[in-house]
Design a protein around this nucleic acid. Structure first.
Lengths: 204, 204, 204, 204
DNA sequence: TATGAATGAGGATTCATTCAT
DNA sequence: TATGAATGAATCCTCATTCAT
């Protein structure tokens, strides 16, 4: 580990670099992220990059980590805060609303673009990230499903929460791409909420 | 267009190359697909690659196209063949079953790995592919929803079919990755079918 | 030597190839002359190229040789035919006129484009060609200068004929290029003839 | 492992590269100029080449430009400096002497070797170079002809200056090649000067 | 003789990383 | 700490030549 940005100045530089990286990946794809271009975009020299990161992979990994962390925290907050007192309906409303906020969508797209890379180049780290993801989000969903809708006990809660998550994530990412450009955000949110409820009802 | 499929031998060579490319992309990621390695894996020389494709991008594009085509055809068949006589339930059963067949899953994973690349490097072609996708699969879903469940008329059918598609695709891809490895295929299929039915019922 | 085009059919094919090569070199430069493109342009297969020539260099060499031969023969004829009876003026008129004919100009341009290549890649052959050139054209010029204008004896006839030749060749080639496009052919011919006469008169 | 500190050093590196390129082109022809060989000859790495030039073509173009510039400046100086006070004879003496200096000859040869390439690969730039050439050298020649020898008014001054230029350039280049090796430089200069005077005298 | 698919060495260019300043 | 010139392995692609049909 090379990084020790104890000074606030150093930490700021590091964030500048990460921000520049996000912009490049989101607008041009991660194959366009090269160290020379990143340094230029961030307004620093290549050398400086290596003051804060040991190599390029570390930058991407930190990007992925921070993005996931941000999104997870947001979901966690939305669910846990309301868990105690609210009905399933209200909890789900908050959950979907949280996921549709601008930075959540940006995070989803970033993960969508970076995950194939992580899988191939940093499989260990990718595993870890995925684990953290499951360990923080799936339990929430499962908790929601179990505590609020006890009738689901006979179902495979893991499968249900997995599918719901994939549906939401796919929808969020798809919306940012050509294929989803002309879909109404209001409809999507409404239907996703409907989908959650629908899954809670017992199968015929 | 460089291709000259004069002899059936030539066409065979081309397929060998594409198969090798699929293997490499699926096992090592598309950043590991380089022309020298591909030629070696396919058992031909680099030069031969360029006898059948103008450049590396064309190979990837053809991979993506063929994969999408295969999957789309499979779904189309499953749905249309049963459309006339069957109930929603049976049609959905066939649809999900078709999507869970081995080569469908392979196709989904390939698309998942290649799409970010296509978006950045071949945006025009990516657009086209997405269009073809929508124009063949979404209509089927919409037809299913409208003809079999007329009660849905008041809903945003585009949004519903989009979400369902994302749910299925995300589930299929997720299953092939570490995060989905321990999920039961049987449960996933059952829950996906349940999800389809659930979406057909009117919201409360 | 691989070539044995004893059949007239074979000789025709060979000429087709050479003609195609001339066209490519004149229109796109000799870096654009590759064996695959040449075969396509000539309407034969690559293999056929190697039936008539041992390698690419031989093709270029034969091109250069034939071109030079053609131009030299033309000049020789113009000069020798009139040498016996005509005045210097008439001989020079014929010489310049011959050099300005369309295929002479094409030959000059071809030589201009090919000579740098020959010098570097086939120095032995280039030497030979140059020798043949000197041995056939310079003697003519010298003969003309000496027999018709005996007053020049004290001058360096080699230098004079060399300079005259360079002037004509440079003018012919320059005319086919952007830099000479807007010059009047009539003026150029008139001035070249004047130049020849002027060189015959003794220096002040 | 070399480290280069300052920007004046950077300019030096650039000149080193260009010098190496000149040497290679002059000794082995421009087909022998490849980036790996050039880097080796210049004592730098391939990467360094691309720190100073965007691509190989830019190197060749800069070579051509610099060469032409150098030669043009030399001629300009020789003519303009003496224009005011000297006779035609003296001006021409200086002009020819200037053109026969070692680096002028090197420039001519370089242009002779590079021009066919430029014509085919950088036609726009080639045009530009030629224009600059005409706009700086031809006017000088024309000025000389018109101001010093008013009797030429009835002639096509463009044609005259064009031919003279071609004669000189052809002679300079030809001298560096096998075909001109055994000619006396003294004779050539004398005869070229004679040629200039001869062209100034009115035609019979 | 003619064909054209296959070959693979060679060449242009990129880019992550280093290190002297 | 910051800089950015320099490095060179890695990668895409071309094309002269061969040879089985």
């Amino acid at each position: 580990m090379k990084r020790k940005p104890k000074s606030s100045q150093g930490e700021a530089t590091k964030q500048t670099i990460l921000q520049a990286a996000v912009q490049i990946v989101l607008s041009d794809g991660m194959d366009s992220l090269n160290t020379n271009g990143l340094a230029r975009r961030a307004g620093v020299s290549v050398g400086t990059l290596y003051q804060y990161f040991n190599n390029k992979d570390e930058i991407l990994l930190e990007l992925l980590l921070a993005s996931m962390e941000r999104r997870m925290q947001k979901v966690k907050d939305a669910v846990t805060l309301s868990m105690a007192f609210k009905s399933s309906k209200e909890i789900i409303d908050r959950l979907i609303d949280a996921l549709f906020e601008a930075d959540s969508i940006e995070s989803e797209k970033l993960e969508f673009l970076l995950f194939p890379w992580a899988l191939a180049n940093q499989p260990k780290a990718a595993m870890n990230l995925v684990h953290r993801n499951r360990e923080s989000i799936h339990p929430l969903l499962k908790l929601l499903l179990v505590t609020k809708e006890p009738g689901l006990k006979s179902r495979d809660i893991d499968a249900v929460s997995f599918i719901l998550l994939q549906a939401v994530r796919g929808t969020l990412v798809g919306r940012t791409m050509p294929e989803g450009k002309d879909l109404s955000e209001i409809s999507l949110k409404k239907e996703l909420k409907h989908l959650f409820f629908a899954m809670l009802s017992p199968p015929k």
